Simulated scan of single mutants.
Amino acid sequence: MSRSPLAKIPAFSLFLALFLFFCAAQAQAAQITEYRVIREPVSDRSGKRLLAVRSFKCDGVPRLLAVDPETLASYDLPADSPKRSGDAGADAFRATRLARALNKYNSPPYRLQNGGAVHAETQVQGLFLTVDLCPSKRPFERELFEATAALGHGRAVPVAVMISGVWLSTHPQELSYLKEAIASGKLAVTWVNHSYHHHYDPKVPLAENFLLAPGTDPMQEVLQAEELLLSQGLVPSPFFRFPGLVSDGAWMQRLKELSLIPIGSDAWLAKGEAPRPGSFILVHGNGNEPKGVKLLLPILKEKAPRLLPLAAAFGAKAEPISPPPLTGGGRGVGELATQRK
């Protein structure tokens, strides 16, 4: 019986090759420093209103993470490109789609599990696919993303990727695959923060598990994941998915202060929840929950549903993610670091 080509490589050499590959991937990452939470209304040169939610330096250059409060698209912009709007901008922000969503979905009554938005606000003809990438050592569900991309027939298919920092930092090849799928126009990804560590202990009750575990640093879990996304040239969206969908009132209020909308699900397939128009489908793309993927693949391949960008669930225009022209050097949701100027 013939041996695999990898079997002819000495174990140490194989380990060294993998280590060097990982180091090379890390070396390509930008350095994010001085990362701060802000909430400042700004506008671009055309007068389009944005909300700056983070300030930081990328390889020493000041930049802003900003959100369009009506389309819910997010942008990584040079800090000197937007114009500060002052008090008038702050008053106008209170009537925007983002402000309404923050007030609605981060408010009581608080549920231990599956709080926040779980379904489209209005009637829509389509579904919202959300794919969780929790920390995992199991094989990546590549077929899931290929089947999703196949729905586009040449157009980018919207999908929300709920990504944890630990998964992102330990899966450079899989991340490269997703970046290539975006660059080639196959997928339009909304990058959703799924916390950095995504702690989980199957022996501990929900009220003391996931992000409710004693000793959890909330700001680290949220902001470190955002920094990591930005370092890889990926723009965080104004959405957040709680690990295990587990949260409490304190966490909901914290997300509101961070300008993040919590995203739950009414169609967690592995738990037997069937999708209907407007559903937030939840599956895992990290190999941790193959049952969900097994149930989803026939839906994608046989029923060919219309998938919508997550922002459309809140009344934003249901079109593939395509940021409007801002000042030079801006990157929109789903764009890659190669477009940073």
Rank of each mutant, 00 (worst) to 15 (best):
L127E: 03
S107A: 15
K48G: 09
A66L: 03
V222H: 05
V42Q: 02
V157C: 11
V204P: 12
M252P: 01
A52K: 00
K203H: 14
K303F: 03
A267P: 13
L144I: 10
S169R: 12
K48Q: 14
A101C: 05
E221C: 08
K8R: 13
L229S: 03
D80S: 12
L211K: 02
F210N: 06
C23E: 12
N286P: 00
E227G: 15
L295D: 04
T338D: 12
F280D: 01
E302C: 09
V204F: 07
S55C: 05
Y110V: 08
A29E: 13
L102M: 00
L20C: 12
T148P: 13
M252A: 14
Q173I: 15
E34W: 02
G244C: 08
G47F: 04
H198F: 11
S136G: 07
F93Q: 05
L282Q: 06
R331P: 02
E180V: 10
E226T: 06
S247A: 14
G233I: 08
V157P: 04
F210K: 01
D132P: 06
A337D: 09
L230G: 04
L212V: 06
L127G: 01
L168S: 12
F19H: 12
P305S: 07
D217H: 11
L310P: 03
W251K: 01
Q28A: 12
L102P: 01
H119C: 06
G334Q: 02
F19G: 13
A99W: 02
H284P: 00
A156C: 05
T122K: 13
L228N: 08
L310Q: 00
Q31P: 04
V67Y: 00
D248H: 12
V37P: 00
L255T: 02
L211T: 11
L269W: 04
N288Y: 04
